[in-house]
């Protein structure tokens, strides 16, 4: 039961990732496209909290041949003072997008396992063993959710002073 749940979720997430590859070139009605706007994989969502970001968010630049569309830039588009080649920014932006996907996946997975634990709680058929199992399931789901939510804050708090 649990195994089937997990593989269902996994295939759903992978389908989203693959589907998000398609809109790499976005065409806008305006003459100069706004490439700083993020792309999110769930239809209709355009903010960071309701959907999965595309891996190329933050890497889009105006197409040099056609300013009305956006393409994934090269590292030289992201050169800054602390990163003279732009390679570091390029790589870690992709990883940060993956992290954002994973944080949101952690939220959805925790919600599903809280529901699953709740079902164990109410559909126990008088078996106190199942009630205890449901309690532990909910507890573990909440612990995982809390760690995922505070992970970014903790690391930023610890390493923020070292890494600017």
């Amino acid at each position: 039961m649990k195994r089937r749940f997990t593989s269902l979720i996994a295939s759903f997430l992978i389908a989203l990732t693959v589907a998000g590859v398609a809109p790499i070139t976005m065409t806008f009605a305006t003459t100069k496209a706004d490439c700083t706007k993020g792309v999110y994989l769930l239809p209709g969502a355009n903010d960071a909290f309701s959907s999965f970001p595309a891996w190329y968010n933050g890497l889009l630049v105006n197409d040099p041949t056609d300013a009305s569309s956006c393409v994934v830039g090269s590292p030289q588009n992201f050169v800054s003072k602390s990163d003279p080649t732009g390679v570091s920014t390029f790589i870690w932006t992709i990883v940060l997008n993956v992290i954002q996907c994973l944080t949101q996946a952690a939220g959805y997975i925790a919600a599903i396992f809280i529901i699953y634990g709740g079902l164990q709680f109410i559909m126990n058929g008088g078996d106190s063993n199942t009630v205890a199992k449901g309690r532990v399931t909910i507890l573990n789901a909440v612990i995982g959710l809390v760690i995922a939510l505070v992970a970014t804050t903790i690391i930023k708090f610890i390493l923020g002073s070292l890494l600017k």
Binding site: K2, T6, L102, A105, A106, I109, N140, A141, G144, L145
Partner: peptide
């Protein structure tokens, strides 16, 4: 944390 969430019991 994802592993912890999916651990169930």
């Amino acid at each position: 944390s994802i592993q912890w969430s999916t651990a169930a019991g």
